[in-house]
Amino acid sequence: MIQFENVTKTYKGSTVALRNCSVDIEKGEFVFLVGPSGSGKTTFIRLLLREELPDSGRIWEAGREIGKLPKWRIPYLRRNIGCVFQDFRLLPSKSVFENVAFALEVIGRPKHVINTQVPQVLDLVGLSKKRDNLPGELSGGEQQRVAIARAFVNRPLILLADEPTGNLDPTTSLGIMRLLDRINRTGTTVVIATHDAGMVDQMRRRVIELDRGVLVRDQARGVYGLDGSVSAAGAGSPTGLPTEAAPEGGPDGPMAAEA
């Protein structure tokens, strides 16, 4: 579903955001992208959204090499990718329903599709009763649920989340993670950039770790810190979430990918 091949991205001022990064993510995987601030997580997400182009290397997404995508095709690529951010990015003057409907409206979906899909997805995120509230009247966790509903309403193949729990307390964060997990179980590939260590440890999913733009670990059922012994324990998630075994995406255990 997502494939990075020797991707390097440098910003002006010679900060290397990603260095010779190669990753393979299969369809239906649930992946954490971890690392300290400035390690290249956000660049990873931006490359997937085709907001940036890599300096070198190639990126495939849903079977297409996105570097070769003509400019006018980019909107159609983005219709297959849902994205959630730390700051929610909701429109304050629109109600919950309108915020979610907006995503369908602007890609030209007819009214009857909007009227059936939006209530469905609001039901999925548990906000059916708040459909007429404005974002300002909701808690942070609820706002993030609206953002997730908006990202998922078009049933994208891939859901990206950049620090989705960065503004939320641990309990609320757990709820958001469960929601993302439910979405993952519908077959959607989920990639979450985070430095919420507790969350990563609880979920026990595939972890890709970046450090100053270099991929330093790719581990199935990993934890936040670099601790190989924990991953050997395998299943049995403390959150009680059913954790599927990750497909044969990446190598099990710590891996140094220094170029």
Binding site: L49, W72, P75, R78, C83, L91, V106, I107, N154
Partner: peptide
Amino acid sequence: RREVSVMKLVGATNWFI
């Protein structure tokens, strides 16, 4: 601009915007 950025994010075409 907030609205425009959301529109771009969810895949609205430039003509639509």
